[in-house]
Design a protein around this nucleic acid. Structure first.
Length: 759
DNA sequence: GCGTTTTTCCTTTTT
DNA sequence: GGAAAAACGC
C-alpha cells in the first residue's frame, strides 16, 4: 500500500494499530503529524471507521488546519462530512452551542477572551471590597483559572495553599466572577472545557450520543493536556477506548496553564490495556544537535525515557558564544545571519528566546541591517483596538446580556455618556441582578436624569435596537460596515487625519472583507465570531519569511535549518521564577530541549554577561552566569568562543543625562565603533522617520491623484519603507493595493490613504 | 466629560 | 523605556 511505504516499522505499527487505546511516544522530529494523518487515512481506506466517526483534536488552530489540509489532499471529496479535525476549544464550542440550553445558557453565549476576563475580575475585586492588595487581578485570575483547569469544584478552591484567609477570599472572588459570567451569558476559555465536561458527565443521553459518534479519537500533543481535557477525552470516546494519543513527555511545556505531564506518564492507568509505542528515529536534525539535546533532557527524572537516534550526518558542531550585552548579542546574531543567508539563500532561520521582551534588540538590529524578518507574538489582527471594538458591537448585538461588550462600546466612539452615568447604571444593574443592557433601557425610558444624558442614552439604545432588527436580514460583512457607519466609528476615524487612523479604517474594511470571504465559503456569522474569539497570534505564522523571531513556546512544532537560542543565562533561562522548584526546573529544561530540536542543520547558543532587565534596571547590576543547560551539553559537541571585552559594562537606563554624554561608553566591536546607548540611535532614527513622513505627506498628494500606480512598480511608504506592488484592484472610487514591503511583509493599502511614492 | 500630564507597573510561557 | 492606568485641570 502506497500509504505505508514511506514509514518505518514503529510508525507503521502506530498507523495500523487496531482496537483499543494506544499511546505513541513521539520524539522530536520523529514524524508524529505524519503518523496521525496516515492513521486517519488508513482508518477510512480500510473501512475501519466512517469518516464522520473519526475525530482528531489538536491544540492550535494552525496544527488543525495543517492536518485538515493533509487529510483532504489524500481523501478528496470527503469535504464537509469528512473526519472532524479541530482544536479542543472549537470542539467544545461546537458541543456547547448545540446543548447550551441544558446548561442554562442560550446558544448565542459569548466567549470572553483574556482581556474580558481581566476586566471582569477587576470589577469583582472592586465590588467585593477586598482588602487592598490581597490579590492583584492578575494573580486572582490565574488562581481561578488554575483551579478550574485542574477540575476543582468551587467549594474546594478554599484549599488554596496560601492560607485560610486567602483561600476564602479567593472562593468569594471566584463565586462572584462566575455569577457575572453567567449573568452575561458568557463563558471564558476555561469554561469551554469545564462546561463541556459537565454536560457529558451529567447528561447520559448526550454522552451516549457522542460516544456513539466518536468511534475513533486521535489526540495530538497529549503531553499538554490538562485534567479537564484528559477527562473530556475519556468521556467522548467511551469504551472500548479507541483513542490514539500522540505526544512527547519531553516537550511538555505548558504546566503553568494546567497541563499535567502525568496524563502521559500514567496513560495506562486511565486507559487500561493501552499499548505503548515509541518513535525514536529522528529525521530532522544532525547527529550532533540530536546528541546535545538528548544529553540535556536526560537530566530530567520525570520522563519515560526515549533514546533518539538518526541516520543523518553528524553535521557541524554547535556554536556557543558569549557577549558583553544584550545589544551585542543581537549584533552578533544579526551578523551571523547575514553570512548564513549569503551562504544558504534557501535556508530558514529562527531566533528563539525565553521572554518576549528580549525580541526588541533583535528587531532593531535586523531592521538596521535590512534583514527581513517576521515577529511572532506581536499584536495579532484580532487584538487591534478597532477590530476588538467592532467585534464588541457584534458580540453585543448577538448577545445583549454581554455587559462587558456593552461597556466597551457604549462610549466608543465618544457620545457623551460618561463615567458617572455608566457607574449609576452599573450599580443599578447590580442591585436589580439584571444585565447592564436592561438597566440602560430602564434609564433611557423613564429615569430622572439630566435631559442631555437622557437623550443620548435614548439615541444609543435606539441605534442598537435598529441594528438588531437589521442584522437578521443582512450578511455579516454588511452588518460590520453598517455598525461602523451607524455607531459613528467610521466618522471618528475619518475626522482624525492621521496615518494610524487610516490604517485603522483599513483594518475595519479588512474585517468586513474577511467576514465576506468566510460567508462565501458557506460558514455562518456565528462561526466567524467564534473563530475570531479563538484565534491567536501564532496561528498566522507566515512561512514565507526567511527569518523568524519568537519565544521558545511559540516555536514548538516548527523547524528551521538554523536556530539561534539567545539569552542562555541563569535567571533568564532557566527563568528566575522556576529556580527553586525541581518540577519547574525540569520544565525549563524541556523548553530548552524543544528549542534545540527545532534546528535541522545548525544550532547557535548565546548568552550575555550583562543584560538590562527590569529588576536590575537601577544601580549595581550583577554579572550573569551562563545557563546550566549550556554546561549540560557535552564538550565534544560544541565550539565555545567569543570572550567579551573585559571590563565593559552596559549602562543602566535611567542614570540621568544620557543625551548629554552619549559617546561615553562606546565600545569597539568587530572593527567598528558602536554606541552602547541604543536610545540615542533610536532617538535619531525616530527623528529621521518623522522628517521622512513629513516629506512624503507633501508629495503624496500628487502621486495618489495621478493614479498611475500599477503592479510591479517599486514604491516607498513613510512607515513601511520600500516595496513592490503586487496587485491593484478598483474598489469604488479608490484603488486597493497589495504591496510586498521589503522589511514589513505584505500589506493591503488604499491608494488614496497610503502615502506611497514611486521609487 | 474630555484631553493632558503623571504615575505605575512591567518581564514567563497562552488556548 | 514604554504602555496603560490614574490623577489632574479645564
Amino acid at each position: 500500500m502506497d500509504l505505508l511505504s514511506g514509514l518505518n516499522s514503529a510508525q507503521r505499527e502506530a498507523v495500523l494499530h487496531g482496537e483499543g487505546p494506544v499511546l505513541v511516544l513521539a520524539g522530536a522530529g520523529s514524524g508524529k503529524t505524519r503518523v496521525i494523518t496516515c492513521r486517519i487515512v488508513h482508518l477510512v481506506q480500510s473501512r475501519t471507521a466512517f469518516p464522520e466517526h473519526i475525530y482528531a483534536v489538536t491544540f492550535t488552530n494552525k496544527a488543525a488546519e495543517e492536518m485538515k489540509a493533509r487529510v483532504q489532499s489524500v481523501l478528496p471529496g470527503e469535504g464537509r462530512s469528512g473526519p472532524w479535525v479541530s482544536t479542543f476549544h472549537s470542539l467544545c464550542v461546537r458541543i456547547l452551542r448545540l446543548h447550551a440550553g441544558l446548561l442554562g445558557y442560550t446558544r448565542d453565549f459569548t466567549i470572553f477572551d483574556t482581556d474580558d476576563q481581566m476586566r471582569l475580575v477587576k470589577a469583582c475585586l472592586k465590588d467585593l471590597d477586598m482588602p487592598e492588595g490581597l490579590f492583584t487581578p492578575r494573580k486572582a485570575l490565574s488562581m481561578i483559572s488554575l483551579a478550574k483547569n485542574s477540575g476543582e469544584e468551587r467549594k474546594t478552591t478554599q484549599a488554596y495553599s496560601g492560607g485560610r484567609l486567602e483561600g476564602e477570599a479567593l472562593a468569594r472572588i471566584r463565586n462572584e466572577y462566575e455569577r457575572r459570567l453567567r449573568l452575561s451569558n458568557a463563558m471564558d476559555f476555561d469554561d469551554l472545557l469545564c462546561k463541556s465536561l459537565e454536560l457529558l458527565q451529567e447528561n447520559e443521553s448526550v454522552r451516549l450520543s457522542y460516544q456513539n459518534r466518536v468511534r475513533q479519537l486521535l489526540v495530538d500533543e497529549y503531553q499538554d493536556t490538562n485534567m479537564l481535557q484528559h477527562r473530556l477525552m475519556q468521556l467522548l470516546v467511551g469504551e472500548p477506548w479507541n483513542i490514539c494519543a500522540v505526544g512527547d513527555e519531553d516537550q511538555s511545556i505548558y504546566s503553568f496553564r494546567g497541563a499535567r505531564i502525568g496524563n502521559i506518564l500514567s496513560f495506562e492507568k486511565d486507559f487500561p490495556g493501552a499499548r505503548i509505542l515509541k518513535l525514536e528515529q529522528n529525521y530532522r536534525s544532525t547527529g550532533h544537535i540530536l546528541e546535545a539535546a538528548s544529553a540535556v533532557v536526560s537530566k530530567n527524572l520525570q520522563r519515560r525515557g526515549k533514546v533518539l537516534w538518526t541516520e543523518n550526518k553528524p553535521g557541524e558542531l554547535l556554536h556557543c558564544f558569549s557577549c558583553s550585552s544584550g545589544s551585542e548579542e543581537a549584533q552578533r546574531v544579526a551578523r551571523k545571519l547575514t553570512d548564513l543567508r549569503a551562504q544558504h539563500p534557501r535556508w530558514s532561520f529562527a531566533v528563539l528566546y525565553r521572554t518576549n521582551f528580549q525580541s526588541r534588540y533583535f528587531e532593531e538590529e535586523l531592521r538596521r541591517l535590512r534583514i527581513p524578518f517576521r515577529l511572532v507574538g506581536a499584536l495579532s489582527f484580532y487584538a487591534r483596538a478597532e477590530v476588538k471594538d467592532l467585534l464588541a458591537y457584534l458580540r453585543f448585538l448577538r448577545n445583549p446580556d454581554d455587559s462587558l461588550a456593552l461597556e466597551r462600546i457604549i462610549n466608543t466612539p465618544s457620545r457623551g455618556i460618561g463615567e458617572q452615568t455608566i457607574e449609576k447604571m452599573k450599580s443599578h444593574a447590580n442591585r436589580e441582578k439584571q444585565s447592564f443592557w436592561l438597566s440602560l433601557q430602564a434609564f433611557a425610558e423613564d429615569f430622572e436624569l439630566g435631559g442631555r444624558t437622557h437623550k443620548r442614552l435614548k439615541e444609543f439604545a435606539g441605534m442598537m435596537k435598529g441594528l438588531r432588527e437589521e442584522m437578521e436580514s443582512i450578511p455579516l460583512s454588511l452588518l460590520i460596515r453598517r455598525v461602523a457607519e451607524c455607531s459613528g466609528y467610521r466618522q471618528m476615524l475619518q475626522e482624525e487625519k492621521t496615518p494610524e487612523a487610516q490604517s485603522r479604517l483599513g483594518n475595519i474594511e479588512e474585517l468586513a472583507a474577511a467576514a465576506q470571504e468566510w460567508e462565501a465559503q458557506g460558514f455562518s456569522a456565528a462561526e466567524f465570531l467564534d473563530r475570531a474569539s479563538l484565534s491567536s497570534d501564532t496561528d498566522s505564522f507566515d512561512e514565507r519569511c526567511q527569518v523568524t523571531l519568537m519565544t521558545l513556546h511559540a516555536a514548538k512544532g516548527l523547524e528551521f535549518d538554523a536556530v539561534f537560542l539567545a539569552g542562555m543565562e541563569e535567571g533568564l533561562f532557566p527563568h528566575m521564577q522556576s529556580l527553586n522548584q525541581t518540577a519547574m526546573e525540569e520544565e525549563e529544561r524541556r523548553l530548552c530541549y524543544v528549542g534545540m530540536t527545532r534546528a535541522r542543520k545548525q544550532l547557535f547558543l548565546s548568552w550575555a554577561l550583562y543584560r538590562r532587565t527590569f529588576s536590575s534596571g537601577g544601580e549595581g547590576q550583577e554579572m550573569n552566569v551562563p545557563s546550566r543547560f549550556l554546561k549540560e551539553i557535552p564538550d565534544h559537541l560544541v565550539r565555545r568562543d567569543g570572550r567579551p571585552a573585559a571590563g565593559f559594562r552596559e549602562q543602566p537606563w535611567d542614570d540621568g543625562d544620557s543625551a548629554s554624554a552619549p559617546r561615553r561608553s562606546a565600545v569597539p566591536f568587530a572593527g567598528k565603533t558602536y554606541n552602547s546607548k541604543a536610545s540615542v540611535a533610536q532617538f535619531l532614527e525616530g527623528l529621521a522617520e518623522k522628517q521622512a513622513l513629513h516629506k512624503a505627506e507633501s508629495y503624496s498628494a500628487h502621486s495618489a491623484r495621478d493614479g498611475n500606480l500599477a503592479p510591479g512598480m517599486r514604491v516607498r511608504h513613510p512607515q513601511f519603507g520600500t516595496g513592490r506592488i503586487v496587485t491593484a484592484e478598483k474598489q469604488g472610487e479608490d484603488v486597493k493595493l497589495t504591496v510586498q514591503f521589503d522589511l514589513y511583509g505584505r500589506k493591503k493599502l488604499l491608494q488614496s490613504f497610503s502615502k506611497l511614492t514611486r521609487v
